[in-house]
Design a protein around this nucleic acid. Sequence first.
DNA 1: TATTGTTATACTCTATAACTATA
DNA 2: TATAGTTATAGAGTATAACAATA
Lengths: 151, 151
Amino acid sequence: MDDKIQAQTEEELSLRLFIVLTRALNAIKKSVEEEIKSLGLNPTEFAVLEMIYSKGEQPIQKIGEKVLIASSSMTYVVDKLEKKKLIQRKACPEDRRITYATITQAGTDLLDAVFPEHKLALKEICAGLTTEEKKVMIKQLKKLGQYAQNV
Amino acid sequence: MDDKIQAQTEEELSLRLFIVLTRALNAIKKSVEEEIKSLGLNPTEFAVLEMIYSKGEQPIQKIGEKVLIASSSMTYVVDKLEKKKLIQRKACPEDRRITYATITQAGTDLLDAVFPEHKLALKEICAGLTTEEKKVMIKQLKKLGQYAQNV
DNA sequence: TATTGTTATACTCTATAACTATA
DNA sequence: TATAGTTATAGAGTATAACAATA
């Protein structure tokens, strides 16, 4: 009870965490979104593209689960990325209900070109924390996110 | 170099942090938004209402800065909350360009009634972390957010 | 001239529901 | 019957630009 934070209940702490989390992400996003926008992409498109870029081809629905949007919205996003020649649909031979989204050469080239800058910008933005602090936070955020998704 | 995380560069760590942050918040939001929706509010409206609830009346623009939306969008949000009788516009006598948003009795009553549940739900969602971990994370997120906003 | 807030407008994203095809 | 994805549709939220009132 001798300091402000210790006096808070678990509920208040969680609320505080949620608010602070929202603010922090909003602040980061504001900067990053301008950068992404300059590529002609929106945050969702970038998230999808980046996922395929780093994880390889994925069933469209699997992507939707990660990005947390409805399947019809995934169709919309994939359409847009396909029109921009950054990804391609590819049938799954084993299960013909499934369609993979796979990155094109142009998509790979784009991210190869942009990723270093993107990461550099993020480094600048996140420079408020030390390396150690980032590592701890990543670990904890993963725990938090995974738990939250299963509530 | 003896573990996966240690091998990452500062850039990659920051990228990872951003991704994990996004996922964690999305997961939490998904749960919270349903709850908020059941009040007939959207996340932005709730954020605005909550800010006035806890911080007292605020110039409309100040709110917009916190929530990070354009001033015309603030007009839209304030209109909606005012139609729902949860907040009220109030002129500023000293500077007649300024309009305060102030919470009504109905707004206060609503949040008084809902806040305990809201916090409880958040507690459940955030139960993946211990009290100590939450406190640390709040502190770090604040640092991160404040720094990011000034980049 | 700069700032606060509003109006008018257009557009992007997302969700819902109904559907097709495959399993 | 259940799952993956699409189509059609509608609506919500946000931004941009031009503006009015005030400082």
